[in-house]
Amino acid sequence: MQSKKKTLLRIALYIVLAYLPMYVLGFAFSDKEGSLTSALAGNSLMLFPAIAVIITRLITKEGFRDALLGTGRRKSGKYYAAAVIFPVLLPLVSGLILHLFIVKSGSIGDSAFCDNGMLTTAVLLTTPATGLAMAAHGFGEELGWRGYLTPKLEELMPTPLAIVVTGMIWALWHGPLLAYGYDFGRDYDFFPYGGFIAMIVMCIALSAFLTWLTKRTDSVYPAALCHIVYDMTCAGEFTMFAMKADGTPFEYRVSEFWVLILSIFPVLIVCGAVCIMLLRKKRISD
């Protein structure tokens, strides 16, 4: 009982420390469009969960023994590869879904992705390369969510539920941005609540995959790499599918909000569900 109370207090302390800078900076520098007016604030947001973990561990005197800071178990290479390949492949499948079911007129051949082979190859190569160079940003978030919050929640509940709760807390952490249209825009009927729900679903699915990577390797680095590459491919690769070669967007059957949800979410949710099942199976076999 004492131990559970201690864990809850630690989780609460971490959440307060992670949320505080995000909400203060997010509202103080909001451009009311889902982004920030300060580039410095925008670029530093991802580092705050890591700072929160460090402060929490120092205050609670937990130390860093279980912080998953090692490079992982033996033969973790394939998971590092998966951490890069998954976010690079995801927009390709999402692009196919987009053009098969959502684009009203025009074919995938008209998209910016298929128009210029050289540029497409360049984007496919430079995105993971930039991800590696910028991996400290991914590490900033993953040290907090997958490296601290999920393991702490697992002390209180089963792994799948811990993944869901982590996903929800992680999604709501983006609150100040979501309230003004971050990621999903403002052009839908039930703004901004739809954006919050969509973000929660996305974060739960992604949380499952990132937790699977973390658990398989006993390290937060694959998740950090995957996180930052995912952020970049969604902004780069997927946009190339959503635009024609001349830079104008395609005509869709649904609003832009649903374009993102219908094209990206199916793959994410399937991957997330598979990862939760794999983690459950492992737990049962343990």
């Binding site: 210029n116 050289m118 540029l119 190859t121 360049a122 984007v123 496919l124 190569l125 430079t126 390369a129 590696l132």
Partner: peptide, 15 residues
Amino acid sequence: GKIALGTGIAALGIT
């Protein structure tokens, strides 16, 4: 585009 492609190939090679 050429510079970006060159950078991407170089980055992969260097890794």
